[in-house]
């Protein structure tokens, strides 16, 4: 959160943007993400807010195949009653709107969206 004015991590900004898209129920990572967060929680010996860590690990930002590009992967659970592909297209647009502010002068990021569930 931005309450203390600190710059927010890119993945967190993307997660917030995605969560705001109509039709998105919540962000959900694959199993790897869940394991990572539970291992991290055990390693640091403190309780991690499960919702927060789940949302963050549902967004992965890496290097794209072309130099200087970003590859962004987002995993989401959608609400029934919304056409899935319409929501994923909205998510992509929301991600693109978020990224330029953080990564100016770069070619457009590759954005991969995976629907991991419907509720």
């Amino acid at each position: 959160m931005t309450a203390d004015g600190e710059p927010v991590e890119l993945t967190e900004r993307i997660a917030q943007a995605v969560a705001g898209v109509p039709g998105v129920a919540f962000l959900r990572p694959g199993l790897a993400g869940l394991l990572r967060s539970s291992v991290a929680a055990r390693a640091t010996g403190r309780r991690v807010n499960p919702e927060e860590s789940r949302a963050k690990s549902a967004v992965r930002v890496g290097q794209g195949s072309a130099p200087g590009t970003l590859a962004i992967e987002v995993s989401v659970v959608l609400r029934r009653g919304h056409r899935a592909v319409d929501v994923t297209r909205e998510i992509r647009a929301a991600v693109r709107r978020t990224v330029p502010a953080e990564a100016e002068n770069r070619p457009p990021a590759r954005v991969t969206i995976t629907v991991t569930g419907l509720v």
Binding site: G30, L31, L34, A84, V85, T88, R89, R92, R110, V111, T112, I113, T114, V115, T116, G117, L118
Partner: peptide, 24 residues
């Protein structure tokens, strides 16, 4: 915590990069 999503399948047109898991 032990969901079995199955295969990852294409969503949308061929040129897009959207996907959905088989179970969904």
């Amino acid at each position: 915590l032990e969901l079995r999503p199955g295969r990852t399948l294409p969503l949308g047109a061929s040129a897009e990069d959207d996907w959905i898991v088989e179970a969904a």
